[in-house]
Amino acid sequence: MEFFLKRVYDEPSADDGFRVLVDRLWPRGLTKERAAVDLWAKEAAPTTELRRAFHQDGMDWETFAAAYRAELAVNPAVPELREALSGKPVVTLLYGAHDERHNHAELLREALLE
């Protein structure tokens, strides 16, 4: 299985394969049709508390990454998502964050590949 990461606000492409939104909140101002999401895996996203600590309270990336990896290690949504994606040759994890390097989708991809 090949994973790609993409902002949900970017135009969908046939190369995206199976498109999975991995944010807990639906992206502001985006219709379901425009998002072209095949699956919304909100339970695999960071908890509300962790998301707020990172985006609103100024938690640094390294602390966030360690905390989210710890959440992923015990989150039953991760093996459920892995199972749902089995057999899909190409999967694109969609996220809403502006920062393409420091976002939880990369960490989730790592967990799904384990």
Rank of each mutant, 00 (worst) to 15 (best):
R52C: 05
R19M: 11
T47W: 04
M59A: 11
E43Q: 14
P46N: 07
A14Q: 15
R24H: 04
E11I: 04
T48P: 00
D57H: 06
A65S: 13
R28P: 11
Q56K: 12
D10M: 11
T63C: 05
R51Y: 11
T31E: 12
A44V: 12
T48D: 12
L39Y: 12
L21R: 11
T48M: 12
A35Y: 03
T48F: 11
A44I: 02
M59Q: 09
G17D: 13
P12M: 13
A53V: 04
R28Y: 07
D15H: 14
A45Y: 15
G17L: 05
F18L: 12
A45E: 12
R34D: 03
D23A: 03
A65T: 05
A53Y: 13
D60G: 02
E49W: 12
W26S: 02
A45N: 14
R24S: 11
R51K: 10
L30M: 08
L30K: 03
D60V: 04
L25D: 09
D57Q: 09
D10Y: 10
D38C: 08
P27K: 02
L39I: 11
W40Q: 08
K32I: 00
D23R: 10
K32A: 06
L39D: 13
A53I: 07
R52G: 06
L21F: 14
S13V: 07
E62G: 05
R34N: 01
D38G: 12
A44P: 06
V20R: 11
L25I: 09
T31G: 15
F54I: 02
D15Y: 12
R28Q: 07
E62K: 05
D60L: 05
D16A: 14
R52Y: 09
E62D: 11
A66V: 01
E62C: 02
A65R: 01
E33S: 04
F64I: 03
D57V: 00
T31A: 12
V37K: 01
Q56S: 09
M59N: 04
R52D: 03
R34K: 13
R19V: 09
K42A: 13
